[in-house]
Write a protein that binds this DNA or RNA. Structure first.
Length: 306
DNA sequence: GTCCATGTTCTTTA
DNA sequence: CTAAAGAACATGGA
């Protein structure tokens, strides 16, 4: 659920509760959300002060006073909240950290994640961003252009690739492409210089505006205090299939790209550059008939004969 | 029962 | 070999 604006909002609302606080106890109720598997997270963090909490891409990065780091990823349904120490534990609460604040009061830091696509990654001294791309809010347009020029994927798929740019997800990819007037099936490397620049500006403007509204709550998302976001009311295409475009009145379309639902206005986002086919790979069809005897055997066929 | 969901990673295919 | 699409993961809601 959470993309850059939601993750950043969680960090900002969590920071006053945990910055400088000491982790007194770690109640890890499910081992399988700790990664790498086998990490003794409790042994690493109990008794340690939290020096700082920051965001990198969609990761919530904790830095301990001893310099070690770990990060929380919220996956699709994760919530990281600061709660009064004695409230009842809701279902799917996988981690509870008891935290002693500088003022002397105690709170609980809870990770709740029904679908369990999220989790906690222990980093130690490793960098928190070795395997993801640059931050979109500070990304120079020329750098985005260069990165897009390297791929023939659709622009929608490219924006969702965290190694290309970190922090954009399904909502903000659709909203940014609408703001830039670019068709989601446009081939990334076919965008004009002007379009790439416009897209870069649109991404920044969209993410910043979402940030000002505390992110989007479509379903599960809450900040660290439990409050929902407000930006879902300002979505211009995401989740508006069939409704009139807020700019031109044309009905908003929904297609599937890379397995993800994609919303766009067919008039405001005209396909004025080469586009891929929706819903499946752009498969160059053989101009002539296929070779006749095409004997292909699946793996299971082969195994069945052994 | 069906389909869908704010994400990532592994596998399969071209 | 590389690039990209699809499936899988787990749960709940419409």
């Amino acid at each position: 659920m959470p993309e850059l604006p939601e993750v950043q909002t969680v960090v900002q609302t969590l920071r006053p509760y945990v910055a400088g606080a000491v982790i007194e106890r770690a109640n890890i109720r499910r081992m399988d959300i700790i990664r790498p598997a086998g990490t003794d997270l409790a042994a690493q963090i109990v008794g340690r002060p939290i020096a700082s909490i920051d965001r990198r891409g969609k990761r919530i990065v904790f830095t301990l006073a001893n310099g070690n780091r770990f990060y929380v990823h919220l996956g699709m349904s994760g919530r990281l909240t600061a709660e009064a120490a004695d409230g009842p534990l809701p279902p799917h609460t996988h981690i509870v950290l008891d935290v002693l604040q500088r003022g002397g009061s105690r709170i609980q830091l809870r990770l709740c994640d029904p679908r369990r696509f999220g989790g906690i990654w222990w980093l130690g001294r490793e960098r928190p961003d070795r395997d993801i791309g640059p931050e979109p809010l500070t990304l120079p347009a020329a750098q985005l252009t260069r990165r897009l020029a390297r791929t023939r994927r659709t622009i929608k798929s490219a924006l969702l690739d965290q190694r290309l740019v970190a922090g954009i997800g399904n909502i903000y990819a659709d909203e940014s492409l609408f703001a830039a007037g670019i068709h989601p099936l446009a081939i990334a490397c076919e965008l004009s210089q002007y379009q790439a620049k416009r897209l870069c500006r649109a991404i920044k403007a969209t993410l910043k505006r979402a940030l000002r509204h505390g992110g989007s709550t479509v379903r599960d998302y809450r900040d660290a205090t439990g409050a929902p976001g407000g930006f879902q009311r300002l979505h211009r295409v995401y989740g508006r299939t069939g409704m009139p475009c807020v700019v031109c009145g044309e009905a908003v379309c929904r297609i599937v790209i890379g397995g993800r639902s994609t919303h766009y206005c067919p008039r405001c986002q005209a396909a004025d550059v080469p586009v891929a086919r929706a819903g499946s790979a752009q498969r160059p069809r053989p101009a002539q008939a296929r070779p006749a005897a095409r004997v292909r055997r699946s793996v299971s066929d082969g195994l069945a004969e052994v």
